[in-house]
């Protein structure tokens, strides 16, 4: 579904991504791990055609450039940007936020259609925030806002779901639930999911494939084939100590330094 060949991104001579090549198949649930400034967000932007500086190499979705793909399959990409770059101060209700991508001529004078409303309510309830549908988005907690964003991504049943740190501000209990929902979507609807996360334990528990990124792509493969102890030392540096439990929890990580 996504194919990246020899992608190199530079900004003022600083290398942000160095010769990345990878393939993501349809229906795969991929987790991208890496420290801050590793270039995870940049990689996602490259996939979506959102990079605002020149790059070398090629990025294709279903054999098309991101721009062509979006023209043909408008709405079939669900994208959750990093939480902080969304304007949560807008004077809109949750229901309007979930349907905000339905841009229509003369939208100021229009109401949502019954079908859109039903879809919005459905996805809000999937993510457990249906009761807030008439609340203003600025009055929600960070975690609730993030769940509203997840519902927004799903409104058009996307083929491709790209999530940049979806678990920011989401509490530990709901975190697991969120991963379950995503896992099920990828399996049932054959949805391709690319997720950036700092939650190493969860990522290695739920996803099919893991990519470890720090400027270079250090590893890419299915969870059981990766020697995390070695790779994480490489990617996160020596401040990281990894404890892998035998059977209780597949990969639990204790970090001495800070990941964030």
């Amino acid at each position: 579904m996504i194919s990246i060949e020899h992608l190199t991104v530079k900004c003022d001579n600083k290398i942000i991504l160095d010769d990345i090549s990878m393939d993501i198949k349809k229906g795969e649930f991929v987790g991208i791990l890496g420290p801050n400034g590793a270039g995870k967000t940049t990689l996602i932007k490259a996939i979506l055609g959102l990079l605002d500086f020149p790059y070398q190499g090629s990025v294709k979705i279903d054999g098309l450039s991101a721009k062509e793909y979006m023209k043909i399959k408008r709405g079939l990409i669900g994208y959750l940007p990093q939480h902080a770059i969304v304007n949560w101060n807008m004077p809109i209700r949750v229901i309007d936020a979930v349907l905000i991508e339905n841009v229509k001529p003369f939208g100021l004078f229009l109401k949502h259609s019954k079908r859109d409303m039903a879809a919005a309510e459905h996805w809000l309830s999937v993510f457990g925030v249906a009761e807030y549908k008439d609340t203003y988005i600025r009055e929600l907690s960070g975690g609730q806002q993030q769940r509203v964003s997840l519902a927004r991504c799903m409104i058009h049943n996307p083929e491709l779901l790209i999530l940049d740190e979806p678990n920011t501000a989401i509490d530990a209990v709901y975190n697991a639930k969120m991963y379950e929902i995503l896992k099920e979507l990828s399996r049932k609807n054959n949805m391709t999911i690319v997720m950036v996360s700092h939650d190493i334990g969860a990522v290695t528990t739920y996803v099919d494939e893991v990519m470890c990124l720090n400027v270079k792509l250090h590893c890419h493969g299915s969870v059981k084939n990766i020697d995390f102890a070695t790779v994480f030392k490489e990617v996160y540096g020596k401040d990281m100590e990894i404890v892998i439990h035998g059977n209780q929890c597949k990969n639990c990580v204790v970090n001495k330094g800070s990941i964030r």
Partner: peptide, 17 residues
């Protein structure tokens, strides 16, 4: 509604065409 989406997040606006 185009401007509304752009004020919410420009990247989403771009992706929505």
């Amino acid at each position: 509604s185009h401007f509304q989406l752009m004020s919410y997040n420009e990247e989403l606006a771009y992706i929505s065409g």
